[in-house]
């Protein structure tokens, strides 16, 4: 049994560890909808990989990274608010992705697995990609932490102090894209943003520094992934939704039980 459970557990825990700090930035920077857009566009990555025959995770990583960079380009758009544009991008890429996937032949792809995750089907090949991706995200975050935090608190002040704000923003988006690629295997394209947002939101209540929030978010994520995988294994529930539900329960538990702080 352990041989069957080891790859999914490894992948799930890695995802939880990196989405803690990265998710904290998503929450602080109000970028939840950016995350969603990247996740939707991941389906286009899947469609393209099937059409051109390369590894699915490579396709996903490339397309989401490309969308991430497009999203950071300064737009001269003045007719719509940002969320309208994000919505167009998200659903446009999702629709195109779904069509490409279906043209490539249903038999080869488990659509439910793509949308809601199927971590129990993870192979050692996926594990290698996911370990490399997570390590890249973790190391990059570690080295750019202070500058990223500065940018989130005030982009203008940081720019005046000589921080390369635009480049850091693009970097953050690329890291998000990588995490989406990794997370798609675990919780699926439709639920990956949940894993980015819920653990940091739960951790916020019990943290008094940004670093605490990032680390506790990782911890909440690790617990949610373990509980979710457990449910899924013993009760035969879908894995992605089980993990997300565990995270939501942890969020509710922490916010109900944690003492009201004097500090907001």
């Amino acid at each position: 049994m352990i041989e069957l459970l080891l790859p999914p557990l490894l992948v799930g825990l890695l995802l939880a560890l990196i989405s803690g700090p990265l998710g904290a930035f998503v929450v602080w920077g109000r970028m939840a909808y950016f995350g969603d857009t990247l996740a939707h566009s991941a389906l286009l990555g899947v469609g393209l990989s099937l059409a051109f025959g390369f590894h699915m995770l490579v396709g996903v990583a490339l397309v989401t990274a490309l969308v991430a960079i497009v999203l950071t380009l300064p737009s001269s758009q003045r007719y719509f608010a940002n969320d309208t544009l994000l919505g167009i991008m998200a659903h446009g890429t999702l629709a195109l992705g779904l069509i490409l996937v279906s043209l490539a032949g249903n038999a080869r792809v488990d659509m439910m697995g793509l949308l809601f995750g199927d971590v129990l089907a993870v192979t050692w090949d996926d594990v290698r990609f996911i370990v490399a991706g997570s390590a890249l995200v973790a190391v990059t975050l570690l080295f750019t932490w202070r500058a990223l935090l500065s940018c989130i608190l005030s982009a203008e002040l940081s720019a005046a102090e000589g921080v390369p704000v635009e480049r850091l923003r693009a970097l953050l988006m690329v890291l998000l894209a990588l995490t989406v690629a990794v997370g798609m295997r675990v919780v699926g394209a439709l639920l990956i943003t949940a894993l980015l947002i819920i653990p940091p939101a739960a951790a916020r209540r019990i943290s008094s520094t940004p670093e605490q929030m990032a680390l506790k978010a990782s911890l909440v994520g690790v617990i949610a992934v373990s509980l979710g995988l457990g449910f899924s294994w013993y009760l035969d529930t879908p894995t992605g939704p089980s993990i997300v539900l565990a995270a939501v329960l942890l969020f509710m538990g922490i916010h109900t039980l944690a003492p009201e702080r004097a500090a907001r």
Binding site: I152, E161, T209
Partner: peptide
């Protein structure tokens, strides 16, 4: 080396940060 003092920052409530930590960032 430029020191800039803007009028005021709007810091999102979701960021747990004290004045001291904010100054350490600089």
């Amino acid at each position: 080396r430029v020191g800039y003092m803007p009028q005021r920052l709007m810091v999102d409530n979701s960021v747990p940060i004290t004045v001291e930590r904010f100054l350490q960032l600089a």
